[in-house]
């Protein structure tokens, strides 16, 4: 792996692995522990806190997020009775979509008790609670039996996890042969572009979101391959994140007074970090990718996927 690129990353390297897990448990959770009512004013109705996939730049957020859920479902290809883990499941956007649209058993983990409550309440409301489990747990504390999972999803979450080598090794251990792993997250270009030591970077990575570590795509893929995963598909969604963030920012603007009433100062945090992120993706100083890998032989032949 390359040398640390940001102050946040350098500070993480100065901590022990145990200290870093504790750091993430507290600092990352803080953002997501804000009143869920705030996020429901900013995000789509399923509360996806990750990029959508837009058919055209004028499309609405709901349609773009629905397309993304459907795409993740297709890529994970969960068969009846299969067991899926959503690491950093948030308020259950993908988790519950997958529970509703497959016959698999879905298990989410999050660092936020409030997110867990929302996800479970929705699972009951939507009649899928018998196949949904949600725990407040750090990924590195999972104690599942080896080869007990068929699919693992990290949507907008692995960016908060420092110890990538350990996490990928752990996922390989937990996946059954033929198991799928999907990541949808943010990366740095391999060539240095933009100022990664700026106050804006520090603001978004630490003050707003607790802890973020952006690798280059090639570094993540290398770590995955070294752990024993086969990478079978990668797509760039950077432009789609620009559109997603534009809609979130407009929603913050539209609901500023209500957000401020629930959490004074938080509308400013949201709009500021989202504006920095939008500009970073627009200038491609940060990139958004969706990565699909398998443990062993893939069940799906991605060479036969239709474009578009």
């Amino acid at each position: 792996m390359n040398a640390p690129r940001t102050r946040a990353e350098r500070e993480a390297f100065a901590r022990s692995a145990v200290q870093q897990v504790e750091h993430e448990r507290v600092q990352v959770a803080a953002h997501y522990e804000h009143d869920p009512a705030i996020f429901s004013m900013v995000l789509d109705r399923r509360l996806a806190y990750a990029t959508g996939v837009f058919q055209d730049p004028a499309e609405d957020l709901e349609s773009a997020q629905e397309r993304k859920f459907a795409r993740i479902k297709e890529k994970l290809a969960i068969a009846p009775g299969e067991r899926m883990l959503d690491v950093g499941c948030g308020w259950g956007s993908n988790l519950l979509y997958l529970a509703q649209h497959t016959e698999g058993c879905v298990h989410g983990i999050t660092l936020s008790e409030k997110q867990r409550e929302v996800a479970l309440a929705r699972a009951h409301e939507w009649g899928v609670a018998s196949r949904v489990r949600v725990d407040v747990q750090h990924v590195e504390d999972l104690d599942f039996a080896p080869e007990s999972l068929d699919a693992v999803l990290f949507s907008g979450s692995i960016v908060h996890m420092h110890n990538r080598e350990a996490i990928h090794r752990q996922m390989v251990r937990l996946l059954r042969p033929g198991g799928r792993m999907l990541i949808s997250d943010c990366y740095y270009p391999e060539q240095a572009r933009g100022n990664r030591e700026s106050t804006a970077t520090q603001y978004i990575f630490v003050e707003a979101l607790g802890y973020c570590r952006l690798l280059a795509l090639s570094e993540e893929l290398t770590v995955m391959e070294r752990a024993g995963l086969d990478v079978i598909h990668v797509e760039d969604l950077t432009g789609h994140y620009v559109l997603t963030l534009e809609r979130w920012i407009d929603n913050v603007r539209r609901n500023r007074q209500q957000i401020e009433a629930l959490a004074p100062g938080f509308s400013r945090v949201l709009q500021s970090y989202m504006t920095i992120a939008r500009l970073s993706f627009a200038r491609r100083t940060a990139l958004e990718y969706m990565i699909l890998a398998t443990k062993g032989r893939p069940k799906t032949d991605v060479g036969l996927w239709r474009i578009p």
């Binding site: 603001y203 603007r253 500021s272 504006t275 920095i276």
Partner: peptide, 19 residues
Amino acid sequence: DSLSLVTLNVALEERYDIT
């Protein structure tokens, strides 16, 4: 710097209720 500009942006939008 970029953070100060973004912060100023947001503060002014909030202050005057404009985009």
